[in-house]
Amino acid sequence: MIPNSVQAALPGARNNRLAPVIYAGGMLAAGLALLIAKPGIGRVPEARQAKDAPGDQRVRRAAQAGRDAAHHFAPTNVTDSIGRSLVIGGAALLLTRLLDEASGRNDR
């Protein structure tokens, strides 16, 4: 139970104030689970799985050049990127909510 002095200083119902904390915890848990588990479904295959077919076609060479260029900045595991984003977002939400609670009501 929240003391009356704290309850009077902070706006909103208790459920409205705790929901972002619970949501942030879920984001952190899901993100950490993805980072630790590294599921194979999110693995990005190598750009060159088979030999490049010889060809004179400009379109084929342009496609191969684009594929090779994209490979340099593509993630090796998409779930790592999603997990990292969830962890950062959850931490930011939790920090924002905690700072909001610490700041109290603005209209005193």
Rank of each mutant, 00 (worst) to 15 (best):
R97E: 12
A19H: 07
A9H: 05
H71G: 10
L35E: 01
R43Y: 03
T79C: 06
I88N: 03
A8R: 13
D52H: 09
R48L: 07
Q57N: 15
A19N: 08
G12T: 00
L94Y: 04
Q49Y: 00
G55A: 15
N16D: 12
P75H: 10
G26M: 11
V21M: 15
A47P: 06
P11M: 05
H72V: 14
A19Y: 09
P45G: 02
G55P: 09
A74G: 03
T79N: 08
F73T: 15
N16G: 14
H71M: 05
M27Q: 13
A91L: 15
V78N: 01
N16V: 00
R84V: 00
V78Q: 04
F73Y: 13
A65D: 09
G66V: 09
D80G: 00
R17V: 03
A24C: 04
H71P: 01
S81M: 08
K51R: 11
V87M: 10
S81P: 00
P45H: 00
G55I: 11
L93W: 01
A74V: 00
V6D: 06
A33I: 06
A33D: 02
P45C: 00
A29F: 15
K51V: 12
L10E: 00
Q7P: 00
L10Q: 05
S103H: 04
S5Y: 14
A19W: 11
S5T: 14
R108G: 11
H72T: 13
A65P: 01
